[in-house]
Simulated scan of single mutants.
Amino acid sequence: MLKIKPLDLDEAAGLRGYADVRIAAQAVDHPGEPASSRDRIIASLREASPDFSEFVRLVALRDGEVVGIAAVGLRTRLAVGSITVHPRYRRQGIGTALLDALLPELRAGGREALENRVVTKGSAGEHWALARGFHVTASRVVQRLTVADVEPESWELSAPVGYRVERWIGATPEHLLVSVASTRRAIHDAPDTARDPEWTPELVRAAEAEDLAAGVEHRVVVAVEEATGLVVAFTDVQLYPDDFEHTVWHDTVVAPRHRARGLARFVKAHMLRWLLTDRPELERIDTGTAAANFPMIRVNERLGFVTAREVVVVSRSV
């Protein structure tokens, strides 16, 4: 008999089962990709996140064994996450049972939509989601840089004429705050960015405060136009506690009037040099880019990223 209950962070056996489902699913669904350890997965469950106010995590048990999990982060009206079933127990209705248990809890908390942003394109997971009321809202490529495969000399780029680089960890310098927010708003010009926030100085400060509270090291590199002193290109990376070998690249955006001048590649190359100088143990960096954003895909390729897989974003009302 199948039993679904919240994950108890104080129950060692449930935590091990949760992690083992994640590990087994990754081995089957993404063979060849680096896998997280059981200890790392369990540790991550106790870490605060700057992206979500709280989490809902469910486990499905059969005869005491964890056979499926649901994990979603909560925002004001949106829940983002995934449902994962151990490969040995798929096609037995476990994923659907988890979804049926999850939706009422999300509705009760005022969430209006459930979204999964990393469903492999064309996979059984995509077909399952479409059959259960989800629809595809975006298509993305996951690109990966494996540090050992790249010559660092390829990141030695000079600033384009008329620009200089600035960088910081944590809080944006006050004199750059307004132009950082303005440049970050330009990300809405890129494909499939409808859910990105309308950045304001206040929202930038709020996001920085969330990173600080969660123990996340937020690194930013920008290009500043010499003539005006304004930020015109921005890129950022968040480094999480205890995850020293891997990170995920977040936004890279260039103000419209300054595009096609090599600024995106320049700020990202500077970030790579900075990261590897301070974090020599870093082995890989992942980034997601809209499949239609060909210019950014090419920028990443020139820096040494390769496409690991194509994913779709699926969403449904709750």
Rank of each mutant, 00 (worst) to 15 (best):
L99S: 05
G133V: 03
P280R: 11
F234V: 04
G110Y: 13
L275F: 13
R144P: 10
T235N: 14
A108K: 13
V136Y: 03
A233C: 14
V248L: 03
A108C: 06
V204G: 03
L78D: 08
D51Q: 09
R22C: 12
E47R: 15
E126F: 07
F294L: 15
F266I: 11
R107H: 14
R284G: 01
A223S: 10
E226Q: 09
A290N: 09
D211I: 00
F234H: 13
E301F: 04
D236Q: 14
K3M: 07
E105A: 07
H258N: 05
L45D: 00
L58D: 07
L145Q: 02
A27F: 00
A207W: 04
A48W: 02
E225M: 07
P50E: 02
D63C: 03
T200I: 02
R75Q: 15
D286H: 10
R273L: 15
L275W: 09
P173I: 06
R309W: 12
Q26G: 14
V136K: 09
V220E: 00
A206V: 09
N116Q: 08
F294E: 14
P152C: 01
V306G: 03
G109K: 15
T172H: 05
A223L: 02
P50Y: 03
G93P: 04
A148E: 11
H86P: 06
P197T: 05
I94A: 01
Q238D: 11
E174P: 07
A138D: 07
A71N: 12
W128V: 01
A291L: 13
S36G: 09
E301Y: 04
E245F: 10
A71P: 10
E310F: 00
L212F: 02
K3H: 14
V248Y: 03
D63I: 05
V253Q: 10
V141A: 10
R22H: 13
R167K: 11
A308R: 04
I187P: 05
D8L: 07
